[in-house]
Amino acid sequence: MKTMTLKSFLPGLTDKSTGAASAPVFSQSIYIVKQTLTNLFLSLVGIGLFLLMWEGISVYLDRNLPGPLATLTVLWSMISNPWYDNGPNDKGIGLQLMMSIERVFKGFSIATILAIPVGVLLGSSKLFYKMFDPIVQILKPVSPLAWFPIGLVALKNAGSATVFIIFITSLWPTLINTAVGVASIPDDFRNVSKAFGFSPFRYITKVLLPYSVPHIITGLRLSIGVAWLVIVAGEMLSGGTGIGFFVWDSWNALSLEKVISAIIIIGTVGLLLDRFFLFLGKKFSYK
């Protein structure tokens, strides 16, 4: 057992009988390990240079901008005690983050439930497309924050209004990508379903959706990306709780260390969300 594991790591240990067969697999895994190590090394070098630059700027600004060390210390203390709750203005970063994620999740889910069917409708009917495309085109470039007052009036609650702007934000990319995906189903596939008499249900489940799912997931990925951008600004506006409020509150308390720490956390969560949808997209791509 021990030699087996060792063999796969040390070329010298391969015995002659199995050596010939396992050699290509072995050199391939060596190659992958090498590549991964190189990539890891390069990203570490990049991060190192960035930290160095940051420290330089911090020194240049007479520490008015906190340096990496001071910031990372604060960041560490924040993430080592994320769940404390000392009243409305002093909550752990974990709690704030959960509030934001919950709002994004709510707004994004409602938007998705609406955007996919409407997108399918717009993509499959030229009539609907021509009717509703102008509206979509006008509303799409509007900053979702402009909807905040409408959300306040309609929902009478700042937290729900934030969910509402996330909903508006997440609507467009999913809707547009779904419509484009459905509209681009090749004639060949449509003709197959016509020639073999597919029912509407069979067409939707066996042709339309499998073809458009990669497009839809790309739309979802764009939506969650923008939603995560907008939540920070939205919570600065609405106040109370959430990572956006945390950033604004830390600025008011003049703790730039906390602001920068929050930026790092926001970036990491955004990256994870993006990677999740990228993974989902790869999983559901038929190519």
Binding site: A195, F196, G197, S199, P210, Y286
Partner: peptide, 23 residues
Amino acid sequence: FQHYSLLPWMSVFENIYQAVDSV
């Protein structure tokens, strides 16, 4: 069809089965 027009997200079996099931 000219370009075979098999549905790429289904197996060979499933491509034929969907047609048979539909008809």
